[in-house]
Design a protein around this nucleic acid. Structure first.
Lengths: 319, 319
DNA sequence: CTGAAAGCGCTAACAC
DNA sequence: GTGTTAGCGCTTTCAG
């Protein structure tokens, strides 16, 4: 690690001159310029980030908090955000939310303060309410701007919302138009359920039923009998992995998808397209989400209308 | 953002005293102590990371480079590493490998130099040879220590190796012991292939065949006919997603797994356990890998023996 | 064209 | 017990 000062000494000039050269300013004796450039290259001068940000009072880092790292969609968002940040000269700093240790979190935020201005929070809607409140309070305590991405928050300054309920509602309309007669919803997540409930008493030319259930793989499998005996011709699950569970049941019990019953999931997990037939799903608007996050970070502006999910129709949904 | 100096002024003492209090040192007038603590709390003093690391010449950051972010296993490793780093007082800094832009990479490394000592590189074995060479050269150019995790590198200082070939060989032995008679390998990745090739001329009581192929989902599906007519009673694929492709073929053609043919994949992707029957697989030794990385970072020591994959036998592999 | 120097916020050695 | 100060490496202002 060579410093500017050393470079100045080696070249027999001063720091000021070295800087002019490295900054590609004009008005430098060309011999000195060459000498300095050679030396910089030889000793591979790299500016010290810590000193630079101290001097410039600049916050180049962006914190990233994830709670559910296990889903394909989370990974995709992380990838996109990472790339966008780096392309714009920021350094993505990964954090973690310590489940039962708020002190640890606070320590992390304390350390981030001073180098980061923004913290992007990806916490699944429907989960972690206490953590969201905690984070919300951190916003007041530390000089950090929290951007809540798809978190179902209402009282924070920077929010990028995703309208799951509205998108689910929209999807049901589309399915009704396709000619299905009996729509079954399996799950319990409010973000989905609310969309269905809005339709329960509408005069859609399609019957709507619900089965309350958890949303894991096993639940989709366990619910098989109930679904089969429901007479529904299309079933929608809270998650793709729950839908995958039903696929497993269907295969064992020789239920044909979509002939006997059409299936739709949510999350657009990679394996959905590996299933037979490929699973239809509601996909996260990851690109748009990241775009909005970057708008906040770069321009401080924040669109208010929530983003819709994208309805991806594959072979599992055909009439 | 309040500073130590301001805190000293506000409390009518000096920096030195403020520090003693904040560091919980004894020998401070208890009235002053209380006053300072109150002020620190009121103005929410947090030390400035940039200043601290400049002063201490300390490198708290650890860079992380991923090339294949799309796999479940990568995500798991990232999660584990992230947690381990944070628990040990480091800040995980995400980077990206710009495909065709080494200049961009260099800029990133230049910026990392000064705040990071280590860079953990997760690049899939069998891929990205040019990038690996490039990274290897970066090691000499920038004052960064690259830890190559599961990268099939040989000439770097810090390597955490995973022995795919040996693990595949071992697995074939186990399968032979289970009583299978004809083992078929589908794929082309050298890390797997080499393990099989070692066995081709051994006197295992099991026939071994190979079909050269790419390792994506589609390939597993397209290879269905060849596999079905091969008379093999067990088939091993380069990747789980390729195995999933064969599952899709098998379902369409009423081939029963494992009765007609047993199946094994590699990667332990989450959806493997969602398949029907659950897919047997060779799993990445993620925990051990991260453990070794942390050993290098914390103690500078690096175990030399490569880590084996873990053979996970599920219902897709039964005699 | 080029040098000297202030100061970002922190730590730690040194003084009293 | 407590105050003063040097200096980490950088950027930038001010003089010449």
């Amino acid at each position: 690690m060579i410093t500017l000062k050393q470079l100045a000494e080696l070249s027999g000039t001063s720091i000021r001159t070295v800087r002019r050269v490295l900054d590609n300013y004009p008005h430098v004796n060309s011999e000195k310029r060459k000498l300095i450039l050679d030396l910089a290259k030889k000793y591979n001068y790299v500016p010290n980030m810590a000193a630079r940000s101290l001097r410039l009072q600049k916050k180049n880092f962006v914190g990233i908090l994830f709670s559910a790292f296990d889903k394909n969609a989370s990974l995709h968002k992380l990838n996109l955000l990472n790339e966008a940040l780096i392309n714009n000269g920021f350094y993505p700093l990964l954090g973690k939310i310590a489940e039962n240790n708020q002190l640890e979190c606070e320590k992390m935020f304390a350390n981030w303060a001073g180098i980061a201005e923004f913290v992007v929070v990806f916490i699944q809607a429907d989960h972690d309410f206490t953590q969201k409140e905690f984070l919300s309070s951190m916003h007041r305590k530390y000089p950090l701007k929290f951007i809540f991405a798809d978190c179902d928050m209402h009282d924070a300054e920077y929010i990028v919302a995703v309208d799951r309920a509205g998108s689910v509602e929209q999807m049901v309309h589309q399915i009704a138009e396709m000619g299905f007669k009996h729509f079954l919803y399996c799950g319990k997540l409010p973000s989905r359920k609310q969309g269905i409930e809005k339709l329960m008493h509408s005069r859609l030319p399609m019957q709507i039923s619900m089965i309350e259930s958890n949303y894991e793989f096993e639940n989709g499998e366990l619910l098989g009998d109930s679904i089969a005996s429901s007479n529904a011709d299309v079933v929608f699950f809270d998650t793709d992995r729950m839908a995958a569970g039903f696929y497993s049941y269907a295969q064992k019990h020789r239920i044909k998808i979509p002939e006997d019953i059409a299936v739709v999931g949510l999350d657009n997990e990679i394996y959905g397209s590996y299933l037979n037939p490929p699973l239809s799903t509601l996909s996260h608007p990851s690109e748009e989400l990241i775009q909005r996050i970057m708008d906040i970070i770069l321009k401080g502006k924040c669109a208010v209308d929530p983003l819709p999910l994208k309805f991806i129709v594959r072979e599992s949904l055909q009439k």
